[in-house]
Design a protein around this nucleic acid. Structure first.
Lengths: 146, 146
DNA sequence: GTACGTGCAAAAAATTTGCAACCAA
DNA sequence: TTGGTTGCAAATTTTTTGCACGTAC
């Protein structure tokens, strides 16, 4: 697993530290969401996350708002799997750059840890763009579905 | 330009042939949409396409329905730029595999014609997935916006 | 105490669907 | 003729926003 070098508790406290460093309050909603994001390896859709936290009285609108904030401070990464639903996964110190393979049928994803795309970013740089990032996803049909 | 090896007319008639080969009718809405998709290099959002064809009495729902059909026969490619809006670009014989750089601010895109990612697909293949495709987009800020 | 955040409800944006009329083959 | 398509309207789905209240610091 990508994030096994740190325990759940480590990642959570690091995440909370990032929140506080950004002058963001440690509210129950945010803590619950972070716990959900860290406990299982995402990416999760907003709806999936809401399912996990709504019994703690966390509203769907709050989920949207928290995820937006989390993304702005780099706590989560937004992923788009081409189906019109935004997904988020936790991002922390020991979670390195990676991509996903998404099953075209069940929509489950698996990590792809290799990435040779940095070189291509040079090309983009030479076209005059700055602050370049890239987004790479693989689509296929997993064994269970085929 | 990517598709300059064929003229507008060539690409349009090829596209219409694909439609007919798939037993899909050559309706005015579909022709107008294809013309819009071919005339300028996309990708276009559904809304942008609708703006281009609505004076021809093509309804927004029809745009959605046509694009879904076009995608299912490989006439267009769906692109997600991570902003929750689906975009489509024409795909035809002489339009080769490519990616985009998307400006984080104006959302305009430019083609990236190099792709070395095929090798990575081998890795995905070895994980038991079939019918693998990949999706790669670059994000950055273009000169005009920075 | 004072912002910042939240719940709730309503609005907005994006997409899908039902159905009668239309039209391409 | 006739079944695939469309326009229109309504319904869903996804996301955002306004506002008064709650709460972290």
């Amino acid at each position: 697993m990508t994030q096994s070098s740190q325990t759940f508790t480590d990642v959570l406290s690091d995440s909370l530290a990032i929140l506080q460093a950004a002058s963001l309050r440690k509210t129950q909603s945010r803590v619950e969401l972070l716990k959900a994001l860290i406990a299982q390896h995402g990416p999760f859709s907003v709806e999936e996350l809401h399912q996990q936290v709504k019994f703690k009285k966390v509203d769907l609108a709050t989920v949207y708002r928290c995820l937006t904030v989390f993304e702005s401070v780099g706590l989560v990464k937004r992923c788009d799997f081409g189906d019109g639903v935004a997904r988020y996964e936790i991002h922390h110190g020991s979670s390195h750059h990676h991509h996903h393979v998404i099953c075209k049928i069940c929509r489950k994803s698996e990590n792809i840890d290799d990435c040779e795309v940095q070189r291509l970013e040079q090309l983009v740089l030479s076209k005059g763009y700055s602050q370049i990032t890239h987004y790479l996803e693989f689509f296929g049909i997993c064994q269970k579905c085929s």
